[in-house]
C-alpha cells in the first residue's frame, strides 16, 4: 500500500482546527447553560486561559507510572479517534488516515480513553477516584451497548465497514441520511450519545458535590491540562463519528461546524433540563430504552 506523507501535516491541521473549535464551542455551550440558569457565564476565551494556567503550574506530584499514563491514554483515545475517521467527506486533504475497516478501530478508540483513565485514577489511590471509575466504567459500558448495536446496524445496512463508503451511501439530499432510512438505530445511538458525553443527567461519574470530581480527583497541573485538552477534542471526535454514521457526514468545514454544534447542543439541552441520574438508574435507562430500540433498528435492516 502506498502512503502519502502529506497526509501527516494535513491530519495535524485537522487536529489543530478541531482543538480550537472544541475550546470555543464548549465555552459557548457552557455560556448557554449559564444563561439557562440566569447567569452571565464564563468568558468565551476562558478555556484557553485555564489551559495555559494548568500547563504553567510550577509543581506537580506523582503517584506512579500509571498515574502519568492515564491522561496520556485519554488524550490518545481522543486524538486517535479523530485521526482515523474522515473529518470532511470527499476531500483528500481532510480524510486523515481513514482506511477500509476503520469503523471497528473507531469503536475501540471510543472506549480506550476510559480504560486508560481507570488505570491511572486507580493508581492515584484516592477512594473517590476508584468510586468514580467504577461508576464511569459501568455507565459507559451500558451506554456502549445500544451504540455498538446501532453501529452494527449501519454496517449491515450499507454492507461496509468503511466510513467513506458509509458517508457516500448517504449523499444526495437529507432523506438519504441514516436518520431517515433507519430512525430506530439513530434513536438508540442518540440515547447512547447522551450517556457518553458525560453531561447531566449522566454525569454522576464526575459529580463534584458528591465524590469530589471522581476519577480526576488527584489530577492537577499538566496532567489536568492534558485531560482538559482531551475534553475539547474527544467530544468533537465522537460527534464526527456520529455525523459520518447517521447524519450524512460533512462536505465542508462550515457544514461540519454547524452539524457538530447542533449535535453537541442536543446533549447540552438535555443536560440543562434534566437532573442527574444515579448509576443504577442510568444503566437501567440504557438497558430499557436504548437496547430494545437498537434491536428494533437491527431487525428493520
Amino acid at each position: 500500500m502506498e502512503f502519502d506523507w502529506i497526509k501527516i501535516p494535513y491530519a495535524l491541521l485537522t487536529l489543530f482546527i478541531v482543538l480550537n473549535y472544541g475550546l470555543l464551542m464548549t465555552a459557548i455551550i457552557q455560556k448557554m447553560g449559564a444563561r439557562a440558569g440566569r447567569r452571565y457565564g464564563i468568558r468565551f476565551y476562558q478555556n484557553y486561559i485555564d489551559l495555559i494556567k494548568n500547563y504553567s503550574m510550577r509543581s506537580k506530584i506523582t503517584h506512579g507510572y500509571m498515574f502519568y499514563l492515564g491522561p496520556v491514554f485519554r488524550l490518545t483515545g481522543g486524538i486517535g479517534l479523530l485521526l482515523f475517521v474522515p473529518t470532511i467527506y470527499g476531500s483528500e486533504m481532510w480524510s486523515n488516515f481513514s482506511f477500509s475497516g476503520d469503523l471497528i478501530l473507531a469503536l475501540y478508540f471510543v472506549f480506550f480513553g476510559t480504560l486508560g483513565m481507570a488505570l491511572g485514577a486507580g493508581e492515584s489511590g484516592h477512594p473517590f477516584a476508584a468510586l468514580g471509575v467504577s461508576r464511569g466504567l459501568s455507565q459507559v459500558t451500558a451506554a456502549e451497548l445500544p451504540f455498538a448495536i446501532a453501529v452494527f446496524t449501519v454496517a449491515l445496512q450499507y454492507q461496509t465497514l468503511n466510513f467513506n463508503e458509509i458517508v457516500a451511501a448517504q449523499q444526495g439530499g437529507f432523506l438519504n441520511w441514516t436518520l431517515f432510512t433507519n430512525p430506530f438505530a439513530v434513536a438508540a445511538a442518540m440515547i447512547a450519545f447522551l450517556g457518553m458525553m458525560m453531561r447531566s443527567p449522566f454525569d454522576v461519574v464526575v459529580a463534584p458535590q458528591e465524590i469530589p470530581i471522581g476519577p480526576p480527583t488527584e489530577y492537577h497541573s499538566a496532567y489536568l491540562a492534558l485531560m482538559q485538552t482531551n475534553r475539547n477534542i474527544f467530544p468533537i471526535a465522537k460527534i464526527v463519528v456520529y455525523m459520518n454514521l447517521f447524519f450524512g457526514g460533512a462536505g465542508s468545514w462550515p457544514e461540519f461546524m454547524i452539524k457538530a454544534f447542533l449535535l453537541y447542543l442536543v446533549s447540552a439541552l438535555v443536560g440543562v433540563v434534566f437532573p442527574r441520574f444515579r448509576v443504577e438508574q442510568s444503566i437501567r435507562f440504557f438497558l430499557i430504552w436504548g437496547v430494545p430500540v437498537a434491536i428494533i433498528g437491527l431487525l428493520w435492516v
Binding site: 464564563i42 468568558r43 463534584p208 470530581i213
Partner: peptide, 14 residues
C-alpha cells in the same frame, strides 16, 4: 463570579 474567570473546584489538587 464566573464571568471574571473564577471557578470553584472540589479538590485541593486542582
Amino acid at each position: 463570579a464566573y464571568r471574571y474567570g473564577i471557578q470553584w473546584r472540589p479538590t485541593p489538587r486542582q
